[in-house]
């Protein structure tokens, strides 16, 4: 029996009259890549937002490594080991790529004013470790040469890569990627999926939102399908492919696309 790292239990989330998530439950097991798919507006991003503490569920529970994280502050959730990227890139544009990643690495640090002011050993150690860690993930993402460039000046693809690097730098156990391949060409997409597999091989658990069915099928271990805020299917890629409800939900998307 694989161990669950994140459990989403009967989560409902309403925005005024709109029910963005309706009694959604699923679990993510340690070390797997779980795909979260569904048509636009299905509630995928909202689901991320609920998990990472941006919105508090109207009802239901979310627990991470066996402990409830509902109502925790966002940064606390991150420090406990959930990191994410954003569907619309949200880097710190005036900071360099390296500094962006350092902000992520700082999630596990505690240097304060006094340490920094007097250059105490703690500051120096954390600064060194953070720097090493940041360069490591930048290299892993293949953008270490751009370390000193401002995030705003990176190419679109590198900005997406930098977002993943920044999330990885927080040293998470679970990493949530919100359409990381959006705007990529097919070759880049394939490359990114390989990368995501290697992220998992490094010991991270991955929750992946992706639009492109073909890609999701190729890279994920299991898939959860949302439609209008409800979970309509869950299972292995093969199960999902043959699930009539999913096909109906994606009706209009070419059958080809879904295979």
């Amino acid at each position: 029996m694989p161990e669950a790292i994140l459990e989403v239990q009967n989560v409902t989330l309403k925005f005024g009259g709109l029910t963005a998530l309706d009694d959604v439950s699923f679990t993510i097991n340690e070390g797997e890549i779980l795909g979260l798919i569904g048509p636009n507006g299905a509630g995928k991003t909202t689901c991320f937002n609920a998990v990472t503490g941006v919105y508090r569920p109207t009802s239901g529970g979310i627990s991470f490594q066996g402990r409830s994280i509902v109502g925790l502050k966002k940064h606390k959730i991150t420090q406990q080991g959930i990191a994410r990227t954003f569907q619309n890139i949200r880097l710190f544009p005036t900071m360099t790529a390296l500094e962006n990643v350092l902000v992520g690495a700082d999630a596990q640090h505690s240097t304060g004013m006094l340490s920094a002011l007097f250059r105490l050993p703690k500051h120096r150690r954390e600064e060194r470790e953070g720097h090493d860690r940041a360069m490591e993930v930048l290299r892993f993402m293949g953008i270490h040469r751009k370390a000193d460039e401002l995030a705003a000046n990176l190419s679109y693809g590198d900005q997406r890569r930098l977002e993943i690097a920044r999330a990885m730098a927080t040293n998470p156990k679970l990493i949530c990627l919100d359409e990381p391949a959006a705007g990529f060409n097919p070759a880049e997409k394939v490359e990114l999926m390989n990368l995501i597999r290697r992220v998992r091989d490094q010991g991270f658990t991955v929750l992946l939102i992706e639009h492109d069915m073909k890609l999701v099928m190729g890279v994920t271990d299991r898939i959860v399908v949302l439609e209008f805020g409800r979970k309509i299917a869950e299972g292995s890629p093969a199960d999902i492919r043959d699930n009539p409800a999913v096909i109906a939900a994606y009706l209009g998307v070419d059958e080809e696309d879904a295979s």
Binding site: T52, V54, H75, T78, R90, P93, M95
Partner: peptide, 18 residues
């Protein structure tokens, strides 16, 4: 860095553990 990240995008900073 935390100041700058907060200034640039408070929510994103918070979600990066700041």
């Amino acid at each position: 860095r935390a100041w700058e990240a907060t200034r640039e995008d408070e929510d994103a900073a918070e979600l990066m553990g700041v």
